[in-house]
């Protein structure tokens, strides 16, 4: 994959590089400055805030307190619980959505009657706005007349307070999230599957390979790059996901769904403590960065092989 990119680019750009070196910078200056101003600058500002005692009502009037906010956070069991919840939520969402998305993609990649309709129906959840997702899952999962309870009761699994019982809340939030993000996984993997040369699959079949062997030896290696990307994106997006958790449970009950980003928001806008919120935010950024670095290392090993 990398080779292909390089060979395509080399002859294209080296002659031009000699002629006009300023052109690319002229093109890219504005968007880069924009990104730096709107996400780089806030990041620096966030770091600065994290060293102060700033309060929401007077965000720029905090006193410098050094690393005190970080010390407070690291000493608090709530922070560690929240890191745990973030990791568990990420693990559950990534595993379930990738497995389910892969299954759906493999299914849709085959021909059957009504495939176009099925594919469209499977794609819909991805497009539904988060606020609407939260409304309908709150309604379906409510402990009284929610339809989920009607289903689980019929199946003999009993009735539950899905979103207000600490035992179930994180799982319920995971299910709602999974519902929304799985179509994206499916679409990405479907695109990869459709690029697998059909001759290879046919050849394997002619050689007498059973479907499972064909999948393992032919299909899987071909879709592996896409699979890696989709796992990375799902992981990063799970780390940073705020809206659906906030709207379904607000981080409760009893902090059962209090991920780091939800914690940041609560600390800032319910406890009005901008300094501590910014420090917690910085911990979150460091965690996201760590994931990307791990990914970059894994990716490099993958391409070297």
């Amino acid at each position: 994959m990398h080779n292909e990119v390089l060979t395509r680019k080399q002859p294209v750009s080296s002659p031009r590089r000699r002629r006009i070196t300023w052109a690319p910078y002229l093109f890219i200056a504005l968007p880069v400055l924009y990104s730096l101003a709107l996400s780089g600058l806030p990041l620096l500002k966030g770091f600065q805030l994290s060293l102060t005692s700033a309060k929401l009502l007077n965000p720029n009037g905090g006193r410098f307190v050094g690393l005190q906010n970080y010390q407070t956070l690291l000493a608090s069991p709530q922070t560690w619980a929240s890191i745990g919840v973030t990791l568990l939520y990420t693990l559950l969402v990534v595993t379930s959505s990738v497995l389910l998305g892969l299954a759906a993609a493999l299914l849709i990649n085959q021909y059957f009657f009504g495939r176009v309709v099925v594919r469209a129906m499977l794609t819909v959840p991805w497009a539904v706005p988060t606020v609407a997702v939260a409304l309908v899952f709150t309604w379906m999962m409510n402990g009284g007349s929610g339809i989920l309870n009607a289903v689980t009761e019929t199946l003999g699994l009993g009735r539950h307070e899905w979103l207000t019982d600490p035992t179930w809340a994180l799982l319920s939030v995971t299910v709602a999230t999974m519902w929304k993000v799985t179509p994206f996984v499916m679409l990405v993997l479907l695109a990869a599957l459709q690029a697998v040369p059909i001759e290879l699959v046919e050849a394997a079949r002619v050689d007498g390979a059973n479907p499972w062997t064909t999948f393992r030896v032919v299909t899987m290696p071909a879709i592996l790059p896409s699979l890696r990307v989709v796992v990375l994106l799902m992981t990063i997006w799970s780390f940073r996901r705020f809206e659906i958790i906030w709207l379904l449970t607000g981080g409760g009950p009893a902090d059962a769904t209090n991920t780091i980003v939800v914690g940041v928001y609560r600390t800032a806008f319910s406890q009005f403590n901008l300094g501590v919120a910014a420090a917690l935010g910085m911990l979150g950024v460091v965690m996201s960065l760590a994931v990307t670095v791990v990914y970059a290392v894994v990716e490099r090993q993958g391409t070297e092989r």
Partner: peptide, 29 residues
């Protein structure tokens, strides 16, 4: 269309917005 110094860095700046949670950016913003 161009090869130029800093290209990787610029790509990273764009990619990093995918890592920055809105909920973290919102406090300083």
């Amino acid at each position: 269309r161009f090869r130029f110094a800093g290209k990787g860095l610029f790509s990273f700046i764009f990619f990093s917005s995918q890592m920055l949670p809105e909920a973290l950016i919102i406090v300083p913003l």
